[in-house]
Each structure stands twice: as C-alpha cells, then as structure tokens.
Design a protein around this nucleic acid. Structure first.
Lengths: 208, 208
DNA sequence: TAATTACTGCAACGATCGGTGTAATCCGGT
DNA sequence: ACCGGATTACACCGATCGTTGCAGTAATTA
C-alpha cells in the first residue's frame, strides 16, 4: 500500500461528489435532490456514489460536516483578522460586518442555503449529527467571537456580562436582513447601511 | 342558492384539510409531506383535497396564506397590547418579549416550522407568493412594531433613525436563541434570561 | 320526490427515486 | 505484462407519489 486511505474510492471523485451534493442539497433540499442529479452535477456515475457513501443520508451528513468545517474556518479567520487588534471599535466592527456579509455572498454562499435546509429538516436529522453541526459550526464561530468580545470587555471597551450571548447578538445585528429580505445582501449600499445600523445598535442601543 | 361560496366544497372539510396540511408541511416539508398523509391527518379522503384545491402547490400556498394571516393577527395584537401604553419601557419590552416567545411556543408553533420550510424552499416558490407572504406576515408585524417604536421616539423615550430597522433588531434580539438553540425556548428561566438580555442590548448596547 | 352537490373508497397510470447486481473498462502499482 | 481496485453504463426492483376516473352514498336544496 502506498498511501493510507481513510475512506474508500479516489479522493478527487469523492470531492466532486461532495461538492455537487452540496450544490443540489442546498438548492433543492434533502428529499428533492436526487442521487442521479447529484451524480450528473459531480460528473460521476450514480454507482460511484455508493462506492464512497453508504446511502443518501450518509452523503448528506458528510456534506454538512465538510461544508460546515470550511465555512467555520473562514468565519473564525475573519473574526480574528478584524478583532485581533482593535483601534477604533466601531469602524473595526463595521469592517468585520462587511467581511461577514462578504462570506455570506461568496463562493461559500451555498453553505448558508444548506443551513436553511438543516433548520427546516431538523426533525429528520439524527440528534447527534445536529449537535455536532451546531458545535463545530455556528457554535465554534460564536465562541471565537465571544472570546474577542471578552477581551474588549477586559480592556474596558465594552460592557459584557455574557460574552456568548453578546456574540450571538452581534452576529444577528450584523446580518439582520439576511433572515427577511435577502435581496438586500447583493446591494453594496444596502449592505453598508445594514452593517452600520447593526453595529450602532450593538454599541449604543436605542435608549433615549 | 342560499349561501354565496367563495370556494368549492364544505367549509369544515376545507378547514380540516388546511389544518392538517399545515401540521405536515411544517414538520416534513413540501416534498416529503404526501397528500395521502395530509388526507389521513385531516380525516378526509384523498380525493376530497382535489375538490377544494387544484393541486399540491395550490394547497401549499393556501396553507401559507392562511397560517400567516392568523399568526400576524396574533403578533400585531400582542405588540399593540404591550406597547399601546408604555409606563416603564424596559419592563414593558420584556413583557412583550415574553409574550412573543409565548406565541412561538403556543398552538401556533407549527407556523414557525412552516416559515423555516419556506426559507429553505424559497427557490421553488413563485416569487409573487413569496412577496405576498413577506408583506402580509413578518413585514406587517414589523411595520406595526416600527410604528410603536416611532411613537416612543417621538415621546423622547427612544432614539430611532430608522423605525423599520429598529423593529427588525428588536425582533431578532428578543428571540435570539430561536435561530440556534431552540431547546432554550421551552425552559422558563432560559426564556426570561434571553428576553431580558435582548431588551437590555436593544436599549443600552454593549459600549463601555 | 327529484336533482344537485359533496364526500368516499378503490383502482389505476405514469413518473420518480433509492438502491442493487452485473459485466465491462480504465488505471496505477508490482 | 499482470493484477486489483475503482469507475462506468445499464438494467432492474420495490416503493412512493401526484393525479385522475369511476361508482356508490349521504346530505342539502328545489
């Protein structure tokens, strides 16, 4: 044996399958996305999919784990890049928010459609898999952001009782319109307005 | 003719169908929910569904419109009840938040699972239907809440540049954990903590 | 009473889909 | 040149599903 294999089949085929499956699962959902369509999207035979994965559910969970790890890596790096050294907290948070929205509309965009599928399909996903996704995906990003906010609190820049909750609030406020009018994400002016308003709300609130 | 009919069939059967379809569409999604299962849930013959609706898509859109109107009515009434006369803004907002979460976990809960299905299925829903849903559902509630916040701003209680955006922020902060750890919604202590933290963030922000 | 309407149960059709078996082919390693 | 695993195309099975047709029945109306 020349190379140790963690999984069956050729790695490039496996990658093509996972990528194609992500595109179709994200757009069509678990039930509507057929394995024939996924095979065609991946440029692979239907039969080959079963050489790499036990069944459709196995492929789905693999796609979730793979895409989640990639996006969480990017998100964590984005948080560290913008909150590693903070000079002006308001403008730095705005920059973080703009970078955040940049990820939402990047080539990683299908992942967030997949997240919507997960949220809709939660009752039909094994609880253990849901737990793993929550912990390695949004949970991990939130912990990273919470740590940065705690640092800023120790330096006296912020007043944060519960860093994890504050991180959740900031994530929501930065991409507020992502949950209602998603078309706003593609207009640069709207993006800036949404982020600045979110950051201002996060910092100052609406009292008085 | 003794009574004018806006739609075919007997009204009670129609109501049973729409209610059963809501339960199954919300839990299983559009594709997975079968018309046989919906008919069984409604205590109605499969064939009767086609007496009231053209096809599955027609039923789905009807369910969306029906459930959306009901929930929006409840939400608007909740907003008016808690923000009609405001004495202590912080405690009144907390009460609104608790009532808000009460709706999320009430017998109207299936609606919000349906909303998750809509968000996942958006690419497969006619844009006109999506627009109508957004306008008569969350949009309507947000406008109502924005009007109340604008009142409070005029009275000098709040500082609000964009009432619609502020309303969106408040809605997000009040039910922050609804988008990640939905199990927190069923623990009274967690609910109170989530709402109070959200309201405090909305009013005061995290600066200093 | 007669007629209209709605509901029901059942069968059936065509299509789609997940999954499997099989035989042929391709390709890297020895 | 040989071998073994990987890939492919194709056919197939059983199940599910949306939808329709049809005949019978109950209820409401003229």
């Amino acid at each position: 044996m020349t190379e140790k294999r963690r999984t069956a089949g050729q790695p490039d085929k496996r990658r093509a399958i996972v990528d194609g499956a992500l595109a179709l699962f994200a757009r069509d959902g678990y039930t509507r996305a057929s394995l024939d369509a996924i095979a065609a999207e991946a440029g692979v035979s239907n039969r080959t999919i079963y050489n790499h994965f036990a069944d459709k559910a196995d492929l789905f969970q693999t796609v979730i784990q793979d895409s989640t790890r990639r996006v969480a890596d990017t998100m964590v790096a984005t948080v560290d890049r913008h909150l590693g050294k903070v000079t002006d907290i308001e403008s730095d948070l705005v920059d973080l928010g703009l970078a955040w929205l940049g990820v939402l509309t990047s080539e990683l965009a299908p992942h967030f459609a997949l997240v919507r599928q997960i949220n809709a399909e939660a009752d039909h996903i094994p609880p253990a898999a849901l737990k793993t996704w929550l912990d390695t995906g949004p949970g991990r990003v939130r912990r990273e952001l919470a740590g940065r906010l705690a640092e800023l609190a120790e330096r006296g820049e912020l007043r944060v009782d519960d860093p994890a909750r504050a991180a959740g609030h900031l994530m929501l406020l930065i991409s507020a319109d992502n949950l209602t009018d998603r078309t706003a994400l593609h207009d640069p002016g709207e993006r800036r307005a949404m982020v600045t308003a979110g950051v201002r709300a996060f910092l100052h609130g609406y009292r008085r």
